[in-house]
Design a protein around this nucleic acid. Structure first.
Lengths: 109, 109
DNA sequence: TCTTCATACCTATCGCTAATATGTATTTGA
DNA sequence: TCAAATACATATTAGCGATAGGTATGAAGA
Protein backbone atom coordinates (compact mmCIF):
# COMPACT_ATOMS: atom_id res chain seq x y z
CA UNK A 1 0.00 0.00 0.00
CA UNK A 2 1.54 3.24 -1.19
CA UNK A 3 2.68 4.17 2.28
CA UNK A 4 6.17 5.43 1.61
CA UNK A 5 7.55 5.44 -1.90
CA UNK A 6 11.30 5.46 -1.65
CA UNK A 7 12.08 6.56 -5.21
CA UNK A 8 14.96 4.12 -4.98
CA UNK A 9 14.35 1.86 -7.95
CA UNK A 10 17.50 1.64 -10.02
CA UNK A 11 19.48 4.06 -7.87
CA UNK A 12 21.84 1.50 -6.31
CA UNK A 13 22.74 0.13 -9.75
CA UNK A 14 23.37 3.61 -11.11
CA UNK A 15 25.59 4.60 -8.18
CA UNK A 16 27.56 1.36 -8.18
CA UNK A 17 28.38 1.82 -11.84
CA UNK A 18 29.30 5.44 -11.28
CA UNK A 19 31.64 4.74 -8.38
CA UNK A 20 33.38 1.99 -10.31
CA UNK A 21 33.96 4.39 -13.17
CA UNK A 22 36.59 6.16 -11.07
CA UNK A 23 38.38 3.14 -9.64
CA UNK A 24 38.05 -0.51 -8.76
CA UNK A 25 36.36 -1.21 -5.46
CA UNK A 26 35.30 -4.17 -3.37
CA UNK A 27 31.77 -4.79 -2.18
CA UNK A 28 32.06 -3.82 1.44
CA UNK A 29 33.85 -0.66 0.37
CA UNK A 30 31.07 0.21 -2.08
CA UNK A 31 28.44 -0.08 0.62
CA UNK A 32 30.25 2.52 2.73
CA UNK A 33 31.16 4.69 -0.27
CA UNK A 34 27.55 5.07 -1.44
CA UNK A 35 26.44 6.13 2.02
CA UNK A 36 29.34 8.57 2.30
CA UNK A 37 28.96 10.04 -1.18
CA UNK A 38 25.26 10.70 -0.71
CA UNK A 39 25.47 11.97 2.85
CA UNK A 40 23.58 8.84 3.91
CA UNK A 41 20.56 9.88 1.86
CA UNK A 42 21.12 6.67 -0.06
CA UNK A 43 22.53 3.87 2.08
CA UNK A 44 21.74 0.38 0.78
CA UNK A 45 23.07 -2.45 2.95
CA UNK A 46 25.10 -5.46 1.91
CA UNK A 47 21.87 -7.39 1.28
CA UNK A 48 21.18 -5.02 -1.60
CA UNK A 49 24.69 -4.45 -2.93
CA UNK A 50 26.10 -7.98 -3.00
CA UNK A 51 23.28 -9.55 -5.02
CA UNK A 52 23.37 -6.51 -7.32
CA UNK A 53 27.10 -6.92 -7.92
CA UNK A 54 26.58 -10.58 -8.74
CA UNK A 55 23.80 -9.74 -11.21
CA UNK A 56 25.80 -7.01 -12.91
CA UNK A 57 28.71 -9.38 -13.22
CA UNK A 58 26.49 -12.04 -14.78
CA UNK A 59 25.30 -9.44 -17.26
CA UNK A 60 28.88 -8.73 -18.23
CA UNK A 61 28.84 -5.17 -16.93
CA UNK A 62 31.39 -5.82 -14.19
CA UNK A 63 34.50 -7.95 -13.92
CA UNK A 64 35.16 -9.54 -10.53
CA UNK A 65 38.55 -10.50 -9.17
CA UNK A 66 39.06 -12.12 -5.78
CA UNK A 67 42.33 -10.92 -4.32
CA UNK A 68 43.91 -11.20 -0.86
CA UNK A 69 44.27 -7.84 0.81
CA UNK A 70 45.13 -7.08 4.41
CA UNK A 71 45.29 -10.81 5.22
CA UNK A 72 41.71 -11.08 4.02
CA UNK A 73 40.09 -11.95 0.72
CA UNK A 74 38.32 -9.16 -1.07
CA UNK A 75 36.43 -9.28 -4.34
CA UNK A 76 37.38 -6.29 -6.44
CA UNK A 77 35.06 -5.10 -9.19
CA UNK A 78 35.90 -3.12 -12.30
CA UNK A 79 33.70 -1.79 -15.10
CA UNK A 80 33.75 -3.57 -18.44
CA UNK A 81 33.26 -1.57 -21.62
CA UNK A 82 29.64 -2.72 -21.63
CA UNK A 83 29.40 -1.48 -18.05
CA UNK A 84 30.61 1.95 -19.14
CA UNK A 85 28.02 2.06 -21.91
CA UNK A 86 25.33 1.02 -19.46
CA UNK A 87 26.39 3.75 -17.08
CA UNK A 88 26.00 6.35 -19.84
CA UNK A 89 22.61 5.01 -20.85
CA UNK A 90 21.33 4.93 -17.29
CA UNK A 91 22.67 8.40 -16.55
CA UNK A 92 20.89 9.76 -19.63
CA UNK A 93 17.70 8.01 -18.67
CA UNK A 94 17.89 9.18 -15.10
CA UNK A 95 18.58 12.79 -16.11
CA UNK A 96 15.73 12.83 -18.60
CA UNK A 97 13.33 11.41 -16.07
CA UNK A 98 14.46 13.85 -13.42
CA UNK A 99 14.01 16.83 -15.70
CA UNK A 100 10.52 15.74 -16.68
CA UNK A 101 9.45 15.21 -13.08
CA UNK A 102 11.12 18.40 -11.83
CA UNK A 103 9.40 20.49 -14.49
CA UNK A 104 6.04 18.94 -13.70
CA UNK A 105 6.48 19.55 -9.99
CA UNK A 106 7.31 23.16 -10.74
CA UNK A 107 4.74 23.96 -13.40
CA UNK A 108 2.04 21.32 -13.10
CA UNK A 109 0.21 20.80 -16.33
CA UNK B 1 17.57 -9.50 -13.24
CA UNK B 2 18.76 -5.91 -13.31
CA UNK B 3 18.05 -5.53 -17.01
CA UNK B 4 16.50 -2.09 -17.19
CA UNK B 5 15.90 -0.08 -14.06
CA UNK B 6 13.07 2.31 -14.77
CA UNK B 7 13.68 4.69 -11.84
CA UNK B 8 9.89 4.83 -11.64
CA UNK B 9 9.22 3.77 -8.06
CA UNK B 10 6.97 6.35 -6.45
CA UNK B 11 6.89 8.67 -9.45
CA UNK B 12 3.27 8.00 -10.47
CA UNK B 13 2.08 8.72 -6.93
CA UNK B 14 4.07 11.93 -6.75
CA UNK B 15 2.77 13.19 -10.10
CA UNK B 16 -0.84 12.27 -9.39
CA UNK B 17 -0.74 14.24 -6.15
CA UNK B 18 0.94 17.17 -7.87
CA UNK B 19 -1.58 17.35 -10.71
CA UNK B 20 -4.50 17.20 -8.29
CA UNK B 21 -3.01 20.10 -6.38
CA UNK B 22 -4.00 22.43 -9.22
CA UNK B 23 -7.48 21.13 -9.91
CA UNK B 24 -9.76 18.14 -9.62
CA UNK B 25 -9.34 15.52 -12.33
CA UNK B 26 -10.76 12.15 -13.31
CA UNK B 27 -8.70 9.02 -13.79
CA UNK B 28 -8.65 8.77 -17.53
CA UNK B 29 -7.74 12.44 -17.69
CA UNK B 30 -4.86 11.96 -15.27
CA UNK B 31 -3.39 9.19 -17.40
CA UNK B 32 -3.24 11.54 -20.39
CA UNK B 33 -2.14 14.53 -18.31
CA UNK B 34 0.91 12.76 -16.86
CA UNK B 35 2.05 11.71 -20.32
CA UNK B 36 1.48 15.23 -21.67
CA UNK B 37 3.12 17.04 -18.74
CA UNK B 38 6.25 14.90 -18.91
CA UNK B 39 6.54 14.84 -22.69
CA UNK B 40 5.75 11.12 -22.55
CA UNK B 41 8.89 10.45 -20.54
CA UNK B 42 6.55 9.20 -17.83
CA UNK B 43 3.42 7.54 -19.19
CA UNK B 44 1.84 5.02 -16.82
CA UNK B 45 -1.26 3.29 -18.20
CA UNK B 46 -4.65 2.89 -16.58
CA UNK B 47 -3.48 -0.36 -15.02
CA UNK B 48 -1.09 1.67 -12.90
CA UNK B 49 -3.13 4.78 -12.26
CA UNK B 50 -6.53 3.34 -11.34
CA UNK B 51 -5.27 1.02 -8.60
CA UNK B 52 -3.07 3.84 -7.34
CA UNK B 53 -6.03 6.23 -7.13
CA UNK B 54 -8.00 3.63 -5.21
CA UNK B 55 -5.14 3.11 -2.77
CA UNK B 56 -4.60 6.83 -2.23
CA UNK B 57 -8.28 7.23 -1.59
CA UNK B 58 -8.26 4.39 0.94
CA UNK B 59 -5.37 6.13 2.67
CA UNK B 60 -7.43 9.30 2.93
CA UNK B 61 -5.17 11.33 0.65
CA UNK B 62 -7.80 11.72 -2.06
CA UNK B 63 -11.52 12.24 -2.09
CA UNK B 64 -13.46 10.57 -4.93
CA UNK B 65 -16.73 11.74 -6.36
CA UNK B 66 -18.55 9.94 -9.17
CA UNK B 67 -20.33 12.48 -11.33
CA UNK B 68 -22.04 12.30 -14.72
CA UNK B 69 -20.21 14.34 -17.34
CA UNK B 70 -20.63 14.31 -21.09
CA UNK B 71 -23.34 11.65 -20.86
CA UNK B 72 -20.81 9.42 -19.12
CA UNK B 73 -19.89 8.76 -15.54
CA UNK B 74 -16.55 10.05 -14.42
CA UNK B 75 -14.87 9.69 -11.05
CA UNK B 76 -13.37 13.00 -10.04
CA UNK B 77 -10.57 13.12 -7.50
CA UNK B 78 -9.51 15.97 -5.24
CA UNK B 79 -6.71 16.29 -2.71
CA UNK B 80 -7.56 16.12 0.97
CA UNK B 81 -5.49 18.12 3.45
CA UNK B 82 -3.62 14.94 4.26
CA UNK B 83 -3.00 14.56 0.55
CA UNK B 84 -1.48 18.02 0.43
CA UNK B 85 0.80 17.22 3.33
CA UNK B 86 1.83 13.99 1.66
CA UNK B 87 2.61 15.86 -1.53
CA UNK B 88 4.93 18.21 0.35
CA UNK B 89 6.68 15.34 2.14
CA UNK B 90 7.17 13.37 -1.05
CA UNK B 91 8.42 16.41 -2.94
CA UNK B 92 10.98 17.08 -0.22
CA UNK B 93 12.07 13.49 -0.21
CA UNK B 94 12.31 13.35 -3.98
CA UNK B 95 14.32 16.57 -4.16
CA UNK B 96 16.74 15.48 -1.47
CA UNK B 97 17.28 12.14 -3.15
CA UNK B 98 17.75 13.75 -6.53
CA UNK B 99 20.32 16.20 -5.22
CA UNK B 100 22.31 13.43 -3.56
CA UNK B 101 22.32 11.30 -6.70
CA UNK B 102 23.06 14.22 -9.02
CA UNK B 103 26.03 15.31 -6.94
CA UNK B 104 27.40 11.78 -6.84
CA UNK B 105 27.03 11.39 -10.59
CA UNK B 106 28.91 14.65 -11.05
CA UNK B 107 31.65 14.28 -8.50
CA UNK B 108 31.86 10.58 -7.70
CA UNK B 109 33.32 9.94 -4.29
C1' DT C 1 43.41 -14.79 27.24
C1' DC C 2 38.89 -13.78 26.13
C1' DT C 3 35.73 -11.17 24.15
C1' DT C 4 33.92 -7.74 21.37
C1' DC C 5 33.81 -5.10 17.30
C1' DA C 6 34.86 -4.08 12.61
C1' DT C 7 35.77 -6.14 8.36
C1' DA C 8 34.20 -8.91 4.46
C1' DC C 9 31.66 -12.06 2.27
C1' DC C 10 27.03 -14.50 1.35
C1' DT C 11 21.82 -15.82 0.66
C1' DA C 12 16.82 -16.45 1.51
C1' DT C 13 12.52 -14.28 2.09
C1' DC C 14 9.28 -10.43 2.06
C1' DG C 15 6.74 -6.59 0.42
C1' DC C 16 5.89 -2.92 -2.50
C1' DT C 17 5.00 -1.08 -6.95
C1' DA C 18 5.04 -0.68 -11.92
C1' DA C 19 3.96 -3.33 -16.04
C1' DT C 20 1.08 -6.19 -18.65
C1' DA C 21 -3.00 -8.01 -20.17
C1' DT C 22 -7.74 -8.20 -20.16
C1' DG C 23 -12.59 -7.04 -19.75
C1' DT C 24 -16.92 -4.08 -20.00
C1' DA C 25 -19.75 -0.27 -21.66
C1' DT C 26 -20.74 4.06 -23.91
C1' DT C 27 -20.05 7.69 -27.23
C1' DT C 28 -18.25 9.77 -31.36
C1' DG C 29 -17.03 9.94 -36.04
C1' DA C 30 -16.15 8.04 -40.50
C1' DT D 1 -22.55 0.26 -39.39
C1' DC D 2 -18.21 -0.26 -37.63
C1' DA D 3 -14.10 1.36 -35.52
C1' DA D 4 -11.90 4.14 -32.41
C1' DA D 5 -11.82 6.90 -28.45
C1' DT D 6 -13.56 7.46 -23.89
C1' DA D 7 -13.87 5.80 -19.14
C1' DC D 8 -13.93 2.65 -15.80
C1' DA D 9 -12.05 -1.75 -13.55
C1' DT D 10 -9.08 -5.85 -11.84
C1' DA D 11 -5.97 -9.98 -11.88
C1' DT D 12 -1.39 -11.52 -12.60
C1' DT D 13 3.57 -11.04 -13.18
C1' DA D 14 8.02 -9.44 -12.38
C1' DG D 15 11.58 -6.51 -10.64
C1' DC D 16 13.95 -4.55 -6.94
C1' DG D 17 14.92 -2.74 -2.40
C1' DA D 18 14.51 -3.98 2.53
C1' DT D 19 15.07 -7.09 6.09
C1' DA D 20 17.15 -10.52 8.53
C1' DG D 21 19.73 -13.70 9.02
C1' DG D 22 24.57 -16.54 8.69
C1' DT D 23 29.95 -17.47 8.33
C1' DA D 24 34.70 -16.26 9.08
C1' DT D 25 38.82 -13.48 10.06
C1' DG D 26 41.55 -9.84 12.22
C1' DA D 27 42.27 -6.12 15.57
C1' DA D 28 41.73 -3.93 19.91
C1' DG D 29 40.88 -3.79 24.65
C1' DA D 30 39.80 -5.51 29.23
Amino acid sequence: MGANPSFMAGVPELLVLRLLQDREMYGYEIVAAIAAATGRVVAPKEGVIYPLLHDLQKEGLLRAEARPAGGRTRVYYTLTSRGVRRLFDLTDHWTQLHNAVARTLREGI
